[in-house]
Design a protein around this nucleic acid. Structure first.
Lengths: 243, 243
DNA sequence: GTGGCAAGGTGTACGGCGTACACCTGCTAA
DNA sequence: TTAGCAGGTGTACGCCGTACACCTTGCCAC
């Protein structure tokens, strides 16, 4: 289709495949991304892909490795906290460009070179900041997926917005549903209203996700800072030796 | 098979289906759980299930609702922190019994009655503890999936343990791989060794997951406590009205 | 009892998926 | 000129979720 006629038919390679997969996933999401669909995008028969990636899992791993390179390197000349903060926010912006990546990262048991390299450099930010190995270890656990710039969003999805049409009759139904929610889940409603002045949103409509993320991140970083400053050490590490 | 001969053939119902699905997922994991496999477990033809659940997504939602009921209700007579802490640890133990649930919760855009009820009661713990609606809202975001007692485990999976056999020749290869890792990801290795005295584990082998979870949880709760004590308020909430 | 009716179980079939395997094609190096 | 091989092709298999038409069963009003 795209290279019809006498076009020279550029050769495929692993990079072109991964790049195309990332672009496609950006466009249509991760669920409809199949080997067949990707092949079609590349004007090639499905099995051709298998000359460049071993299987679909490897494709997904490769896609992650591609987007990791978009994360900014650690800044220099700043305190550990700002370095870590900046890096995480950079990762966050990358993950926001590639929404599918969150799910893939969650699902995958990641151990690709790219992931390891990122983790290595991430750990380095703490060690370079004067953290003990012990504290760094626990801190890495505490940060968890926030390292990638995402948290489980509990309040996602505005609510099932009923596409359009059937407005009036639906309005009454929606009113009723709203009443029912208020009766059964009063607290959820209270919280939802705290940020969304439009009650139709029911949950999280007007949330400023970026604010929420940074709020939680700073809570964490401040806690870590405090532990670091007071020379915190786990009981485990206090044991002089295993003997 | 199981009810051969003249056995009375107990009737199916939504509950039996969900219960069986949970049990099956506990046994074989979530990935191999198909409608066909589940039907077979219930000694029934696949399509029979669709008389009790609309489709597979609804099945998964239903499974979540089933296990939510296993989470202990909030304790009474304690401060908010202990109540929240206890509840989260209870959720954690449930999710540990049903390992598949983490993935399902992550994937799903959950809004089942069970999930809403749990969230509602969860929010209630803060409001009852004297938290402002504003702070509670942000705190809920900060807690995120920790509400369910899990964090993204970055150090999971000991390493690809090569099943058995081919021990000696492999040993040399493993040595080489180890050297290579040490060269390319020194920090990762350092951290891994901090908790696992056996270097073969490479990452996180000897981690005490429960300790790590509680470490991160307490970091969070302490931070929240501090904000609460000092009457923290978001700028947003300080605006008197929208006008 | 008997006819009808709804709830629930069955059988067949379709389109999609990942991918094994045998094959063909066209470029490169000798 | 030709051998070799990297890379693209075609066919096929066994899974998946599920639409749709059908049959069975047990209950109820008559």
């Amino acid at each position: 289709m795209s290279s019809q006629g006498t076009a020279p038919r550029v050769r495929l390679n692993r990079d072109r495949v991964l790049q195309a997969a990332v672009t496609l996933a950006d466009g249509i999401g991760i669920a409809p991304l199949s080997m067949r669909r990707l092949a079609q995008e590349l004007d090639v028969v499905p099995m051709a892909l298998y000359k460049h990636v071993a299987n679909k899992d490897e494709l997904l791993d490769g896609m992650i490795d591609v987007i990791i390179t978009e994360i900014a390197p650690p800044a220099t000349g700043l305190g550990w906290k700002d370095v870590v903060r900046g890096r995480i926010l950079s990762a966050r912006s990358v993950l926001q460009r590639h929404q599918w990546a969150r799910q893939v990262l969650e699902t995958r048991t990641n151990k690709t070179p790219g992931v390891l390299a990122y983790m290595d450099s991430f750990i380095g930010m703490f060690l370079d900041g004067g953290f003990s190995v012990d504290l760094t270890h626990h801190v890495m656990h505490a940060i968890g997926s926030r390292m990638w710039g995402f948290t489980q969003e509990l309040f996602d999805e505005p609510v099932n917005h009923n596409d359009a049409g059937a407005a009036d009759a639906d309005d009454a139904a929606r009113q009723a549903m709203f009443q029912e929610m208020a009766r059964r889940y009063p607290h959820v409603l209270t919280i939802a209203m705290a940020s969304a002045h439009d009650p139709a949103g029911v949950v999280g409509q007007g949330c400023d996700d970026q604010f929420e993320f940074e709020f939680a991140l700073d809570l964490l970083l401040d806690g870590i800072d405090r532990l670091h400053a007071q020379g915190w050490t786990s009981v485990r590490a206090q044991r002089p030796a295993t003997t």
